[in-house]
Simulated scan of single mutants.
Amino acid sequence: MSHFVWNVDPVLFSLGPVTIHWYGALFASAIFAGLYYMKWVFTLENKNVDTLDNLLMYVVLGIIIGARLGHCFFYDPDFYFANPLKILAIWEGGLASHGGGLGAIIGTWLFCKRHNVNTLWLLDRLAIATAVFGIFVRSANFVNSEILGHPSDVPWAIVFERVDSLARHPAQLYEAIAYLLIAAVLTLLYRSTAIKERVGALLGLFLILTFSARFVIEFFKQQQASYTLESALNTGQMLSIPFFFVGVFLFLRAKQTPAVTGKK
């Protein structure tokens, strides 16, 4: 069977000493797409859009720091404990979405504490923007030929020629499509139901859907961690389980929580 061959240069363009990579361009696009979405939400709810620039700083720093530390300590702890200065070498690659999620939550909490905003109320709305963010990031992973799937003969398998000649599951695209569907579902519920009035419900549903999808897609991915667990589940799946149950707790709890506004 003839499979689609992917061999895109990770460099978008170079101009003298300046080099722009596809990953950086798509990561920046993810940030601005999430910001645009939040501006739309704040406009709909008559909130102060000007505060979003400050929120962006907290969340982006949280994502980058959390994703880097998550990669270092969740997926390759032996190497980074032995070479702690390498933790700072973010240009060498290595970001973990679970750590990025935790970092985003911490960054949002710090922002809300400073600006007297209800944290869960804001996280409900950021959940949808995060799904939009994920579409771009996983697309960037696809362009970079990283986070590869297992070899496969399915008709839609792809040969990542920069890596090897094997046809593989495009696991990055599976995840990007999952985020697209999650963003669409959450947006529809946000616009057409009263779910946004139940604090924690949108965040809970986001966690349930995202980490259910992540758990399943991990079966199609190659091992990302530098170690092997004595379990049928891999590291990504083990890390997804707590997020899933937090989501269930938040969603069920939201049914009994009075509606709130953004302010505490």
Score class of each variant (00 low, 15 high):
Thr43His: 14
Thr43Arg: 15
Leu44Pro: 01
Leu44Ala: 12
Glu45Gly: 07
Glu45Ala: 09
Glu45Leu: 10
Glu45Thr: 13
Glu45His: 14
Glu45Trp: 11
Glu45Lys: 11
Asn46Arg: 14
Lys47His: 14
Lys47Asn: 14
Lys47Leu: 15
Lys47Ile: 06
Asn48Thr: 08
Val49His: 03
Asp50Gly: 08
Asp50Phe: 03
Asp50Val: 14
Thr51Met: 11
Thr51Lys: 12
Thr51Ala: 07
Leu52Asn: 10
Leu52Trp: 10
Leu52Ile: 14
Asp53Met: 07
Asn54Gly: 04
Asn54Ile: 09
Leu55Ala: 11
Leu55Gln: 00
Leu55Pro: 02
Leu56Gln: 08
Met57Ser: 15
Met57Gly: 05
Tyr58Glu: 09
Val59Met: 07
Val60Lys: 02
Leu61Tyr: 13
Leu61Ala: 14
Gly62Cys: 02
Ile64Leu: 12
Ile64Phe: 13
Ile65Glu: 06
Gly66Thr: 06
Arg68Asp: 05
Arg68Thr: 06
Leu69Thr: 11
Leu69Asn: 11
His71Val: 01
Phe73Pro: 06
Asp76Thr: 12
Asp76Ser: 12
Asp76Val: 06
Pro77Arg: 09
Pro77Thr: 13
Pro77Asn: 10
Phe79Ala: 03
Phe79Cys: 07
Phe79Lys: 11
Phe79Asn: 08
Phe81Trp: 08
Ala82Gly: 11
Ala82His: 10
Asn83Cys: 11
Pro84Leu: 05
Pro84Arg: 06
Leu85Glu: 11
Leu85Pro: 00
Lys86Arg: 09
Ile87Val: 14
Ala89His: 08
Ala89Gln: 05
Ala89Ile: 00
Ala89Trp: 04
Ile90Ala: 13
Ile90Asp: 07
Ile90Cys: 03
Ile90Leu: 03
Trp91Asp: 09
Trp91Phe: 12
Gly93Arg: 04
Gly93Cys: 14
Gly93Tyr: 06
Gly93His: 05
Gly93Ile: 08
Gly94Leu: 03
Gly94Lys: 08
Leu95Ser: 09
Ala96His: 05
Ser97Ile: 10
Ser97Trp: 01
His98Glu: 13
His98Cys: 05
His98Gly: 03
His98Leu: 08
Gly99Leu: 05
Gly99Ser: 03
Gly100Ser: 12
Gly103Leu: 02
Ile106Asn: 02
Gly107Thr: 07
Leu110Ile: 03
Phe111Gly: 01
Lys113Thr: 13
Arg114Met: 04
Asn116Gln: 15
Val117Asn: 09
Asn118Ala: 15
Thr119Phe: 01
Thr119Gln: 06
Leu120Gly: 00
Leu120Asn: 10
Leu120Phe: 13
Trp121Lys: 07
Leu123Cys: 06
